[in-house]
């Protein structure tokens, strides 16, 4: 059944960075930069412990839109700035809004904020095909 979308439609997706998520993501992605898996290295790097791979956070923004449009194969573009690290036990809330629909392309702007209300992504835009 074809679903219709309108400019102004909103959606929300919440993800928790559980304690071992940076390690699970390291295993799956190959990103074993020690700042993601070794708290001691994280401290030496001035990060106060490990931080989640930014690309995992980006993946969650993609997931938010994939769930909204109902098909991950329709994602066409994502871009974002990583403005603040996500740490284990942070809860990130993704709030998206459809800002444009042109031909078969839907554009969404997505905010991502931690449990303290701080933005962990900035300028996040995800586009999906709805044709």
């Amino acid at each position: 059944m074809a679903r219709t979308f309108q400019v102004g439609d909103t959606f929300t997706h919440v993800r928790e960075c559980d304690l071992y998520r940076p390690i699970y993501y390291a295993g799956a992605s190959g990103d074993f930069n020690p700042i993601h898996i070794d708290p001691e290295v994280g401290k030496v790097a001035g990060l106060d412990g490990v931080i989640l791979q930014g690309l995992c956070t980006l993946g969650w923004a993609v997931e938010a839109v994939a769930v909204f449009v109902g098909d991950p194969g329709r994602i066409r573009k994502v871009k974002a700035r990583f403005s603040r690290p996500v740490r284990p036990e942070d809860v990130v809330t993704f709030e998206g809004k459809v800002t444009a629909i042109e031909a078969d392309r839907l554009t969404t702007e997505v905010t991502a904020t931690n449990q303290r209300g701080e933005a962990v992504l900035k300028g996040a835009v995800v586009e999906a095909s709805i044709g």
């Binding site: 980006l58 871009k79 974002a80």
Partner: peptide, 16 residues
């Protein structure tokens, strides 16, 4: 590399 962080990312998908 210890001081390197990922600043921005853009990905475009033309097919699955």
């Amino acid at each position: 590399l210890l001081m390197l962080v990922h600043g921005e990312q853009e990905l475009e998908f033309l097919d699955v």
